[in-house]
Design a protein around this nucleic acid. Structure first.
Lengths: 189, 189
DNA sequence: ACCGTAGGCCAACACTTGTTGACAGTCCAG
DNA sequence: CTGGACTGTCAACAAGTGTTGGCCTACGGT
């Protein structure tokens, strides 16, 4: 069902996608105009419509994100916190644009918020349920972890609060790892 | 220098301000249109311009926020974490609109981000510097605390992640208090 | 060589936005 | 009573938005 007829316009398609990712990440949904994206990709605005249907279609194509969550089997219980924090930091830095765009749009656009909820439900929750001693507590614990990770990303990559930006990557891991570890495995207070 | 000539239009002014607060909170800066705000306040859009100059002027007037940070002198070192978490939760729930608006706009609008930075610098940092044993570490520690508190607000009040919404207020305090306490007073890892 | 088809650009549409100026009612000081 | 300032409404502007359809070009299979 996955056919791959290489089209002559693939270069243009990916150029649009790359430009859109950058614009959405830096400007948010409303301020990222199709005209600006098209200019960045050096094509006509109408091409965006032809290839992605609408602005929301383009936005959907951009935010097709895979958190590449680690295999719960391979995580050692005693350093799972550090592993998770490190994983999220890597994820955010490597493919900065997409996650920042996702966060920005999730905050402004209702559809974006639901997209984020879906990612949490489909990618984060299952991992938490396999690690938690009591799977029933998994949602709450996962929610707490996400609140800390998203909060850090918010302060560091979006709001750019000076102290959050100044922290070295290893410092962030050293500070957050115990928090995540506790949210995940400590007894319910 | 603070003159208070009671104007006949004060009712309208506050009506505009209230409507703007709600609209900015629920829609963000770009989607909150002056026309919608004016309709909510049951007046003409041009009145907004007359009384607040421009959309950004109105936005400035709305986001004049005071965190009412507690007096550092009165905080007991052993439960400062709990006190801070409780304070921020109260703040957010009482005065829901303004802070949600601030967060939403801070994420989308560069001016909003700087406004948030200013609040952090002027209201949060000074308190942290009086509590921290080593004032030089205060910015980093305050940044970490803010990342956790903003992250929780983001998940609970903006994105409305189900697990973060489902948590009872006391549970949130019980989970976050030790985190904040550690960020504030634990030795640098 | 040929012709259907896909890639691309241009100009325009319909709509919404922030913002402005002219005009009418209303209050109060003189 | 009267004039001026204040409060409010209406209509319009200029700019920018997503989106559409028509037209030209150039490839690629037959």
């Amino acid at each position: 069902m996955a056919e791959k007829p290489p089209r002559r316009s693939d270069a243009t398609r990916t150029a649009i996608l790359a430009a859109a990712r950058e614009r959405f990440a830096s400007d948010g949904y409303e301020r990222a105009t199709i005209r600006a994206i098209a200019k960045d990709a050096q094509i006509d605005p109408s091409m965006v419509m032809r290839y992605y249907g609408s602005k929301e279609g383009l936005f959907d194509a951009v935010l097709d994100v895979d958190l590449r969550m680690p295999d719960p089997q391979r995580l050692r219980p005693h350093d799972v916190g550090e592993a998770l924090v490190d994983h999220f930091l890597t994820l955010w830095e490597e493919n900065n644009g997409v996650l920042t765009a996702l966060l920005r749009v999730g905050v402004t656009n209702p559809a974006g918020a639901q997209r984020l909820q879906g990612i949490f439900r489909d990618q984060v929750l299952p991992v938490a349920q396999r690690i938690c001693p009591d799977p029933e507590q998994a949602p709450a614990r996962a929610g707490l972890i996400v609140s800390q990770m998203l909060g850090l990303a918010l302060a560091r990559y979006v709001l750019k609060l000076p102290p959050a930006v100044a922290l070295a990557r290893e410092e962030v891991v050293a500070w957050l790892a115990p928090t995540v570890q506790r949210y995940l495995t400590a007894p319910h207070p």
